Simulated assay, not measured.
Amino acid sequence: MSPSTERMLNRVKAIYLFINDFGPVTTQQLVDEFGTTKRTIQRDLNVLTYNNLVDSPTRGMWETTSRKVKIAQ
């Protein structure tokens, strides 16, 4: 796996865990927490949404879904 792919997967996992712990959170909170651009966060949220792991009940707010996830260490 390329370093950039590994970095992206680690960030997506961290975003999921952050939303799970502190959600619902705003897109801007994620930008501030992870120090990336809004576009990068949006791409990562698209991955999580596609896999039915997060949902946006209100525009710009994110929370985890009830889908069960096994987190690898």
Score class of each variant (00 low, 15 high):
Ser2Met: 08
Pro3Gly: 07
Pro3Trp: 05
Ser4Cys: 07
Ser4Ile: 12
Ser4Asp: 10
Thr5Val: 03
Thr5Phe: 01
Thr5Gln: 02
Glu6Met: 14
Glu6Arg: 05
Glu6Leu: 11
Arg7Tyr: 10
Arg7Asn: 07
Arg7Met: 04
Arg7Gln: 08
Met8Tyr: 08
Leu9Thr: 03
Leu9Cys: 07
Asn10Lys: 12
Arg11Ile: 00
Arg11Met: 06
Arg11Val: 02
Arg11Pro: 00
Val12Trp: 04
Val12Met: 08
Val12Asp: 04
Lys13Phe: 03
Ala14Ser: 09
Ala14Ile: 00
Ala14Arg: 02
Ala14Met: 03
Ile15Met: 00
Ile15Phe: 00
Ile15Lys: 01
Tyr16Pro: 01
Leu17Trp: 12
Leu17Lys: 15
Leu17Cys: 13
Leu17Arg: 15
Leu17Gly: 09
Phe18Leu: 08
Phe18Gly: 01
Phe18Glu: 10
Phe18Met: 05
Asn20Phe: 04
Asn20Arg: 14
Asp21Phe: 12
Phe22Gly: 11
Phe22Ala: 14
Phe22Arg: 15
Phe22Val: 14
Gly23Val: 03
Pro24Val: 10
Val25Ala: 01
Val25Cys: 09
Thr26His: 04
Thr26Asp: 00
Thr27Arg: 14
Thr27Gly: 11
Thr27Leu: 15
Gln28Cys: 11
Gln28Val: 14
Gln29Met: 12
Gln29Val: 10
Leu30Pro: 02
Leu30Lys: 01
Val31Gly: 03
Val31Glu: 02
Asp32Leu: 11
Asp32Gly: 06
Glu33Lys: 15
Phe34Met: 01
Gly35Glu: 09
Gly35Arg: 04
Thr36Ser: 08
Thr36Leu: 06
Thr37Glu: 04
Lys38Met: 09
Lys38Asp: 12
Lys38Gln: 09
Arg39Asp: 10
Arg39Asn: 12
Arg39Glu: 13
Thr40Cys: 01
Thr40Trp: 02
Ile41Thr: 07
Gln42Asp: 12
Gln42Ile: 08
Gln42Met: 09
Gln42Leu: 13
Gln42Pro: 05
Arg43Phe: 09
Asp44Leu: 00
Asp44Phe: 00
Asn46Gln: 12
Asn46Phe: 07
Asn46Tyr: 07
Asn46Thr: 13
Val47Ala: 10
Val47Cys: 14
Val47Phe: 08
Val47Ser: 07
Val47Trp: 05
Val47Ile: 15
Leu48Ser: 00
Leu48Met: 04
Thr49Pro: 01
Thr49Leu: 05
Tyr50Gly: 07
Asn51Arg: 13
Asn51Gly: 12
Asn51Met: 12
Asn52Ser: 11
Asn52Tyr: 10
Asn52Pro: 01
Leu53Lys: 09
Leu53Met: 13
Val54Phe: 06
Val54Leu: 11
Asp55Gln: 13
Asp55Arg: 11
Asp55Met: 12
Asp55Pro: 02
Asp55Gly: 04
Ser56Ile: 02
Pro57Thr: 06
Gly60Asn: 07
Gly60Asp: 11
Gly60Arg: 04
Met61Glu: 11
Trp62His: 11
Glu63Trp: 00
Glu63Met: 10
Glu63Phe: 02
Glu63Ile: 06
Thr64Pro: 05
Thr64Phe: 07
Thr64Ser: 04
Thr64Tyr: 03
Thr64Ala: 08
Ser66Thr: 14
Ser66Cys: 07
Arg67Tyr: 06
Arg67Thr: 15
Lys70Trp: 13
